[in-house]
């Protein structure tokens, strides 16, 4: 069996698009998180909902910023 070339897990040309969309979703979720935090009172707030929104938002922001780094030529 011949050696097979190693490619990136995601095609390099998708990085800018992925970065824009993931960061957009992440920022929208961040906005909704802070809207929820400021509009609900301390008693009516649900910790589970807060943490779920935070987790999903940080996932999108984390991967979005990674793809932003990759798209701008900073290969980590």
């Amino acid at each position: 069996m011949a050696a097979k070339p190693i490619t990136s897990p995601v095609p390099v040309s998708w990085y800018p698009t992925l970065s824009v969309f993931m960061l957009a979703i992440g920022l929208v979720l961040t906005a909704s998180f802070f809207i929820y935090e400021t509009t609900s009172s301390r008693k009516s707030r649900s910790l589970a909902k807060e943490l779920t929104t935070a987790a999903v938002a940080s996932f999108f922001l984390g991967f979005g910023s990674l793809f932003l780094l990759l798209a701008s030529g900073v290969f980590v």
Binding site: E50, L51, A54, A57, S58, L61, G62, F63, L66
Partner: peptide, 21 residues
């Protein structure tokens, strides 16, 4: 690397939650 970034963002949110609580 991505998980490191995700964790960093998550810590920021947790800090916000705990401040408001």
């Amino acid at each position: 690397e991505p998980l490191m970034l995700v964790t960093a963002f998550f810590f920021f949110f947790v800090a916000a939650v705990s401040y408001l609580h």
